[in-house]
Amino acid sequence: MTKFALFLGCLIPLRLPFIEVSSRRVMEKLGIELVEMNGAGCCPDPIGIQSIDYKTWLALAARNLCIAEEMNLDILTLCIGCYETLKTANHVLNNGPEFKYEVNEILSEVDKEFKGNIQVKHIIEVLYEDIGPKEIENQISMPLEGLQVATHYGCHSVRPSEIIQFGNPERPTFLDELVEALGAQSVPYLEKMLCCGAGLRNTAKEKEEEALSLAKVKLDEIQRSKADCMTLSCPFCFISYDIGQLQINRKFKERYNLPVFYYLELLGLALGISSSRLGLKFHRSKVTPVLKKLGLA
């Protein structure tokens, strides 16, 4: 059985726990064991904390990496922000002896030492590389036939490519392949690689309208593409389009009504896990039209 150290982060377990539920239930069904990381903290945030103090950001990330090193397991993250932080820190510490020296000096305060003997993977990377779209296609029992899906990658799932080294940084296809493995169709649309704007929500609170405008550009294009729903794999992006959609409707007097799914939720449905066991009722964007189309509601 393949095993990973599960890095939960903050946002999923403490704001969007239904994403944690789907991920755990699906991975169990696919025979992947997830082991808890005792004592792990915030990754920390790759946008805010890295921008304030690179050294603290790297040291706190290294402490999380050390926990997995002690478990002798590669890390699996559910969030693309955590992925960016932990994968970048791992890369920087493995390739920069001066960083490793300085960070280990800081870590000696807590009797830890970064060694550099594990890898960091995002759950989508594990699904695509360790399991593969073909195997997923074989495993599903309830193909999502007829479902038109707009995929949203999330900036840090592919960039900076020098560090992430997974998929094309501007024209990736892995998520589209994973959607089609479920029997659904990935629909092409404009602005597919546009940032969701989540970074702005934290670092520039006064620019809320601009952040919402950014998300709105994508919603407009997805609406034009006639997709039934969108899918993504990051809790920050999820909030931008799920709760964000309600904020956009209020602010710009619009009536968007696009169901938004974390990819593992669609995979869960295709594996025959019920929508109630996936906690889909906790979405702010209503998922019922999709469940109806699939004959599940």
Binding site: I47, S51, R159, M193, C195, G197, G199, L200, T203, K207
Partner: peptide, 9 residues
């Protein structure tokens, strides 16, 4: 300078 979303494009 804090308006960068760090999308790295």
């Amino acid at each position: 300078i804090w308006f960068c979303t760090m999308c790295h494009t």
